[in-house]
Design a protein around this nucleic acid. Sequence first.
DNA 1: CTGTTAGCGCTTTCAG
DNA 2: CTGAAAGCGCTAACAG
Lengths: 345, 345
Amino acid sequence: MRPTVHDIAAEAGVSLATVDRVLNNRPGVRSVTRDKVERAIAALGYVRDVAAANLAKGRTYPLIFILPAGENSFMRGLEAEVRAAMARSAAERTDITILSVPAFDAPALAAALLDAREQRPAGVAVVAVEAPEVAEAVKRLREDGIAVVTLVSDLPGSERDHFAGVDNIAAGRTAGSLMGRFLGGREGPVAVLAGSMLVRDHCERLEGFRAVMSEDFPGRRILPVVEGQDNPALVETLVDTLLDKHRDLAGIYSLGAGNRGLVSALEKAGRAKAICAIAHELTPHSRAALVTGTIDALLNQNAGHEVRSAIRVLKAKADGLSVIAAQERIRIDIFLKDNLPVEQA
Amino acid sequence: MRPTVHDIAAEAGVSLATVDRVLNNRPGVRSVTRDKVERAIAALGYVRDVAAANLAKGRTYPLIFILPAGENSFMRGLEAEVRAAMARSAAERTDITILSVPAFDAPALAAALLDAREQRPAGVAVVAVEAPEVAEAVKRLREDGIAVVTLVSDLPGSERDHFAGVDNIAAGRTAGSLMGRFLGGREGPVAVLAGSMLVRDHCERLEGFRAVMSEDFPGRRILPVVEGQDNPALVETLVDTLLDKHRDLAGIYSLGAGNRGLVSALEKAGRAKAICAIAHELTPHSRAALVTGTIDALLNQNAGHEVRSAIRVLKAKADGLSVIAAQERIRIDIFLKDNLPVEQA
DNA sequence: CTGTTAGCGCTTTCAG
DNA sequence: CTGAAAGCGCTAACAG
């Protein structure tokens, strides 16, 4: 049987309360006593039963998730994952609220953060837009002892505790590597389609993509980036134009959302098979396009992992604990038509 | 505050003990009483606090992992993950033992299973070798109420409760898809290197690979499969021969282990860059070869995920609970030099 | 500064 | 068949 607080109290010749004080390094213990207890802990190889501690504490973690509104499938999937986490709230001792804000709107986001602050949550997870006022709002939250985690898109240089998302430079590089190899010796330029250069994740993907293309495939021309605001209708128009203007287009890297527009444009132009398309995020639409071959490869971040990681980190930070960074690293999934996960119910 | 057993006892007008009997559907409750309690549970929307239940039960799960011996890096990594899980034993209420058996040795594996059975564990996780005597041993365990999960390599048709591993047909298809696209119009045949056709995972990868090559790249010649027993030295000799015999070799798919041998053979022949190599499992060696470009792509199964999943499933099965299959599905990771995870300490 | 005591939500004897 | 009471390992008042 593994040792309990009773055992260590007995071993150290003190009471349970004192052991508890040492364990949770609460003040009010003479250092001699503290030493005795610590020796006992070490001697018995005590490890605290976290479940029992939580039960006794009855602590819950009020958490707020701030997500962009709109019909972006990835974001709606992310929201679904947050709702799934809400369903597990009881078991995980969390109490989650979702706040919705317009996409790519820094003032609205800053306001939402301050709004969240009023509710005095233990932590806030936010899909960031890169702007000084947002960083400033994050700072205010931190000053109030509220843990802040950026989700999907980061806010470097701010005081956020952690970023729960993928390495977007690596994602862009991966896209570039696949694009270059898939095209092989085929002639023609490659177009790049982003959502907005206001969000960090899109900028970083572009940076990684360009880096690999120029390092490993220097002969390939990359067209200037086009911004579709993650809006399918706008994306479709933009791609229509691209296809029309560049009859020899060899590939398209879509690093943002709105892939429905990309897919329709390619298909109606009858160039779905001829053009190598690489996009991000596995959604019902992008999945279908991968299966038919309109999209050749899909990079994905697992929204479920991101949400669960954000929650774990927020809870840890709220308790002043550190996290094992490596363990919270989010992988970049690569999907081809051949390794698609089975569809969920 | 969410309802507790007390609330439902009060609501139903019975005692705690009766509520508990109903909750865990233990016998000795009149069906009228049972109904009353169940109505109360439904009315209050009660959800049991699993942590508290475990605390009260003080239950632990003795588990046995049976792993192949030898210096196969992937298997040693798997073992390291099992040891990591052992370190978490206290928190997870598990008590894990590792049994080591010679690789690809069905009689030894069957004996080990029977050996494990003597220790009356709650569950056994085993890297299977496909043979009737192994299936028979699994059956004996199940008859004794011991949960059995196959790990990495499955034993279909046996009575194992679950398989914790990747879809190896999909893995083979993915390898084929990448190989076909990476080669593009380049001429030359593709070689396939396996460990042993006695293990299910290798057979399935081969099947998937061949399927995609014939469907999507019918012009490409696939050489007969060569078995390297997951042994680097043997693999090296075999690849030496292949390289010598096929001066126009365009690609190699290594679907088993022993990649050290593959890498040295390619490098010493000076054909590392010219030949497209796709292999399995991220190990220190394969990682290095991916970075230098000797290996072009690596398919990987996350050993940590597999071990944790196996443990979750074994615990659930031991308690007679079902698992959400989708949640326990293990993904196939694809690594290029550009999306390698940061090296762990 | 330290100890006593009463729980957290659930399970488990042991009586009745 | 049902109930009362003790306790899992830990924490939190409240006394001393």
